[in-house]
């Protein structure tokens, strides 16, 4: 009999007269708005000795990066890092690089963690003395549970959660940093809607599903169709939602000039999900919105962004 069979048999015998016990549901953490999530994230990370920098625009991030890069000579940069976020430094192997730059698969506010994918290369995340990790606003999850759900099965053979610089208190209970992994962790949070045209080098990142909120959104949409209110695009063009298709999958519009248009509900839902993931980042224009939807759904064609924006604006999402 194989060891495997023996062990399994012993277990089955041991459990023969014992009832299977109930598996409890996983505790669902409370939803947290993006700004609060960011605060938690920064506070936790700083609490464990990391540095957190927040950027309101791509220019700001870029400017900071060129300053930051000055104190290093060579860097290892993850292939996942988009062009605009790569330091202007000669690239080097992780064994000799002074700086490693990673692009987070996800980030966790609750625990102050960045989630790094092995697809980037793990040595570059571990052997460098200083690590810079970019976090896009939309991959910052309020809870560990939400982040784990988003990255489940993603990222390659292994994921690493980094929640601060490497440390140890094994020598006389005195904390020292940089024992094996990076002794300095800098996290750059890109707290602006992503420039979705620059996605070439970055794989698609997860946008959270907000099923409860989406249901509410569909109800609001139905109501809008019933009321037949006049809506406006940001450019001031009037239009209205005429009706929803039988299946609810298409929204039919009537434009000011009497022309007819249609819009897949999926576009609207993708836009809502994206907005909610950004938690309170309502200041988006039609083109940004359109790009986000297109990139999320993998579309190349137009998503009729101006009407999309008009509807979401009327319902208070933007």
């Amino acid at each position: 009999m194989s060891v495997r069979t023996r062990i399994l048999e012993r277990i089955r015998t041991a459990l023969a007269d014992r009832p299977a016990l109930q598996l409890p549901d996983v505790p669902e953490p409370a939803e947290v708005a993006w700004e609060e999530a960011y605060q938690n994230f920064a506070q936790r990370l700083e609490g464990s000795g990391a540095e957190v920098v927040r950027f309101g625009s791509p220019q700001e991030a870029r400017g900071w990066l060129s300053e930051f890069a000055k104190s290093f000579h060579r860097a290892w940069v993850s292939p996942r890092v988009p062009e605009r976020l790569r330091p202007d430094l000669p690239e080097a192997e992780p064994e000799v690089a002074e700086l490693g730059v990673s692009y987070a698969q996800a980030a966790v506010a609750e625990t102050g963690s960045v989630v790094l994918a092995s697809r980037e290369g793990r040595r570059g995340q571990l052997l460098v003395p200083t690590q810079l990790v970019w976090v896009e606003a939309e991959v910052l999850y309020p809870s560990l549970l939400a982040a784990l759900r988003a990255v489940k099965g993603e990222g390659g053979a292994a994921l690493g959660l980094h929640s601060g610089p490497s440390k140890s208190a094994d020598i006389g209970q005195i904390t020292v940093k940089g024992v094996h992994g990076p002794g300095r962790l800098v996290v750059g949070v890109l707290a602006f809607a992503r420039d979705t045209t620059d996605r070439s080098s970055a794989p698609r990142d997860p946008v959270q599903r907000h099923d409860g909120e989406l249901k509410a959104f569909r109800d609001k949409l139905k109501k809008l169709a019933l009321e037949g209110r006049t809506l406006e695009t940001r450019e001031g063009k009037a239009f209205s939602v005429r009706k929803l298709s039988e299946t609810g999958k298409t929204v039919y519009l009537e434009l000011g000039n009497g022309a007819k248009e249609s819009l897949p509900t999926a576009y609207l839902e993708a836009a809502v999900s994206w907005i909610l993931t950004l938690h309170g980042r309502h200041q988006v224009g039609p083109s940004e919105l359109g790009q986000a939807v297109a990139s999320q759904l993998g579309l190349k064609s137009s998503v009729k962004a101006s009407y999309l924006w008009g509807i979401l604006h009327a319902l208070g999402y933007v």
């Binding site: 464990s48 102050g112 292994a158 929640s163 992994g181």
Partner: peptide, 20 residues
């Protein structure tokens, strides 16, 4: 601590990863 400083979630040997 809120979580260990490093958590490894290992999903198998290297596949299309650059190292591991």
């Amino acid at each position: 601590q809120p979580i260990g400083t490093f958590v490894s979630l290992i999903q198998g040997p290297k596949k299309d990863d650059p190292d591991g």
